[in-house]
Design a protein around this nucleic acid. Structure first.
Length: 307
DNA sequence: AAGACGAAAGTGGTTGA
DNA sequence: TCAACAACTTTCGTCTT
């Protein structure tokens, strides 16, 4: 799908146009057709009022993993037309309802509970719907494979959420997830690794750049500083300063340097708190950045301008 | 007085035998 | 399974502004 194509594989430009009519994705920079003959998921009919829509619509509500039965289930109703039934009918009705409850297997009840929890944590972290959906999917698979056995439901939910965040490039740190769910950080990490391995979900190592916008806004830094930080990060990655290091530490250090250069100085403490690392880590990364990227001059220049 | 810096010891996780 | 190891944290003392 289009949303997964973000960069042109030819020239790396992110300037893509999505031509809905032709079903093509084209790079505006070099003209490469990245994707063609895509399926249009839109409706082919139009509606002008509610009646028409009702008549033309052929599908129900979207199928979703965030409902325990994927939004497809039917319940024997609670209220409504019971009064129309005779004594016999009423009996049958109640019997059916009882049976429906019994048919709900352990898995379904587990899912119902877990997805409620998932929803709670996801909204606490203000995660987009797509991530929540992905996490629900992961959790459902985990339950079906019996991976929850021996682990608390909540920790698996957190693990699934963490994995979903990573896949959608909206990373949250383990600390944040831990705070939102009340599960120990280590426990989440463990279950996360376990379920991603068991379900063979491939996760890209998280990219420090993904953290920048969130940290920057939390620190109330300007857009220029933010893009400067990304620029610094890019250079750092080219100089192989990023591999093996904690991505949050690098993101934090880049932001710190960018803030210095743009005269929006934040203390190491402030940046460290937001990023969830210590000042020491920022200092170490910061030192490396200055040394390898020769940013000393820029920082000094910024200092002079301040006076 | 607050922030920046650096050294030293401790912690949890990965790796390789 | 265990030990070595790198990254990161904690703690604390010193220096700078």
């Amino acid at each position: 799908m289009a949303q997964y194509v973000k960069k042109c594989p030819e020239c790396g430009s992110t300037n893509l146009i999505y031509d809905k009519e032709k079903g093509e994705v084209i790079c505006k920079n070099c003209g490469l057709v990245i994707e063609e003959r895509m399926i249009d998921f839109g409706q082919e009919w139009r509606e002008f009022d509610h009646d028409q829509a009702d008549k033309r619509r052929r599908t129900g509500a979207p199928m979703t993993y965030t409902k325990y039965d994927r939004g497809l289930g039917t319940d024997v109703g609670q209220k409504g037309d019971i009064y129309k039934l005779g004594a016999k009918g009423k009996n049958k009705f109640f019997r059916l309802r009882k049976w429906q409850y019994r048919i709900s297997t352990a898995i379904e009840r587990n899912l119902k509970l877990a997805l409620a929890e998932l929803k709670r944590v996801a909204s606490f972290l203000k995660l987009p719907k797509s991530v929540e959906e992905e996490a629900a999917r992961i959790y459902t698979m985990a339950v079906q494979r019996g991976l929850v056995r021996g682990r608390s439901m909540e920790s698996v939910v957190s693990g699934a959420l963490y994995a979903a965040c990573r896949r959608h490039e909206v990373p949250r740190t383990l600390d944040e997830l831990s705070e939102a769910s009340g599960i120990d950080k280590k426990e989440i990490g463990r279950t996360y690794r376990f379920i991603t391995r068991e379900l063979s979900i491939r996760i890209l190592p998280s990219n420090p750049i993904d953290y920048i916008p969130r940290f920057a806004s939390a620190l109330k830094l300007s857009a220029e500083t933010q893009s400067k930080a990304v620029e610094i990060l890019d250079m750092a990655q080219n100089s192989e300063l990023t591999s093996g290091r904690g991505p949050t530490g690098i993101a934090a250090a880049s932001l710190y340097v960018a803030a210095l250069i743009n005269n929006e100085k934040r203390t190491q403490r402030e940046v460290a708190d937001i990023a969830g690392v210590t000042e020491v880590t920022i200092r170490n990364r910061y030192k490396e950045l200055l040394k390898k990227l020769k940013l000393q001059d820029e920082v000094k220049k910024a200092k002079k301008e301040e006076e």
